[in-house]
Write a protein that binds this DNA or RNA. Structure first.
Lengths: 199, 199
DNA sequence: TGGTTGGCTAAGCGCTTGCTTAGCTTCACG
DNA sequence: CGTGAAGCTAAGCAAGCGCTTAGCCAACCA
């Protein structure tokens, strides 16, 4: 099985001040939600005055969008590189283990990704919705492959796809570091998801 | 199997104006979230001036608390009356079907219940946390009973309990009426949950 | 060396927020 | 009929919001 988590960093964000603002925003959005977070709070987490935020980002929503877009792409990339194995069962286990572990390991980013969509502008929401469909398709495809070769028994393919995704996504809601190792959680959930669909 | 959904009404809230404010608040909180909802918005949904809200509720947070408390109690009550069946498998299927259908049928209330906890005062949060533990215990007990009589094979009881709950709770995040019948969704999820744990 | 640029701050603008105040109307009840 | 409570509104207050403006300073370079 592939490495279940990868270090997610923001090194691509330059300069360093913009990165500090962004990571501060991730923490604040994850803790209190987008609406309850003030630009003054974000700026002070980065050790700057409120106005400095606008040197690097044109608006608070833009900060959210950059986090959401990057987070969605990271989640999709985790799935794409975890789609390995010679059988649908192996592939599904790898996908669920990786996706679940990512939501635990990066639960602050994941929380913003999964629960702050409503704060995006319609245009920005449409952009991340494309990635969300790709994520969903990645799971649905493996389930369909398993149904075709007879290793899975699935009565409702879209419904079961959603259920498998739900299992991992909901991790972002409740996970805190003291609740255990992300990789171990990934293994448990891989097992549960496999049992949900096996013939 | 028992009735999977029950009409959830607010008749116990008196007078009618207080009830209109409360149902308006449920809709607004579910749509935009607590922080993005203004007291003016709630009042105008009830056809009243902003100040009228304070005749019936001392604060916006109190409105949230009353919704959250009632919603949590309703969810627990649904579980308690669905814990029927002669085997752990039958009981689990009934519990998951009812809990899932409730989250679909009452997805606006469920959204407030599951995703607005952070806006409660520490005291009010502690009060609903008691109910949340009872909900969790209700599922865990059935799983433990199934493990004891050998009908379930569960490697991680608390982790699997959380996973079963996650499945239903996450419904509140994505469900809209056009996504199908709550009862049918309940049956699908009951089946998936049963397969997750059966020996 | 003088001028430009990038990164920052102090101050504050216009607006919205949750909530309060003062006062009006309706109606049950002695 | 008189009175007080219940339920409501118009107006507005203090605080906080996202964001802007004006200007400072260090680094770089023709």
């Amino acid at each position: 099985m592939s490495a279940v988590t990868s270090p997610l960093v923001w090194e691509h964000v330059q300069p360093a001040a913009a990165r500090r603002l962004l990571t501060g925003a991730v923490d604040a959005f994850a803790e209190r939600g987008y609406q309850a977070t003030t630009t003054r709070d974000i700026a002070s987490r980065a050790g700057m005055s409120p106005a400095a935020l606008y040197v690097h980002y044109p608006s608070k929503e833009r900060l959210l969008f950059e986090i959401s877009l990057y987070g969605h792409n990271a989640a999709l990339e985790v799935l794409r590189s975890a789609d390995v194995g010679s059988t649908p069962a192996d592939r599904l286990r790898s996908l669920v283990a990786a996706f679940t572990a990512w939501h635990a390991e990066h639960h602050t980013i994941a929380r913003v990704v999964q629960y702050e969509l409503a704060a995006l502008t319609p245009e920005h929401l449409a952009e991340v919705a494309v990635i969300r469909r790709a994520i969903s398709t990645q799971i649905e495809q493996v389930l369909a492959d398993g149904v075709r070769d007879g290793s899975f028994a699935v009565s409702d393919l879209p419904g079961t796809t959603l259920a498998v995704l739900s299992l991992s996504i909901d991790v972002a809601r409740w996970y805190t570091p003291h609740r255990g190792d992300p990789a171990a959680l990934g293994q448990l959930y891989a097992d549960l998801a496999h049992r949900m669909v096996q013939a």
